[in-house]
Amino acid sequence: MRMSDLIARPVVDSAGEVVGQVADVRLVQDGPMLRQVQHAFRVAGLIVVTRHTGRLFGYERGPAVKGPWLVRKVLRALHRNTRYVTWEQVGGIDGQDIVLRVTKDRLPAVSWLYREGGP
């Protein structure tokens, strides 16, 4: 499997409703040891956008993202419906779609990643 098999793939929830498509994959360096040198980057979750535009231009960094004020505002407006799906909420891949174990309304907004009480 390749990373590009996950990115841009459509995501549907447990009720069969379309959530959007994968824009980015969050990786955490706590996977299996690679030749006793370092931990592997494990897939922790998916960032799912509702739009077709796909690219986030760094929006997934949350409030820490710096940049021209106007560009930030535009990105924020474009991606206000962006959701975060943890890998545990992923049921499997069915043909083209990634199918979730939960319904759409249970998914947090991506900004949850950067709030207290986030992962």
């Binding site: 231009f57 760094g58 710096k66 940049g67 021209p68 560009v71």
Partner: peptide, 8 residues
């Protein structure tokens, strides 16, 4: 260029 010039 504008975006990367803002990227730490």
């Amino acid at each position: 260029v504008l975006l990367i010039a803002n990227d730490r």
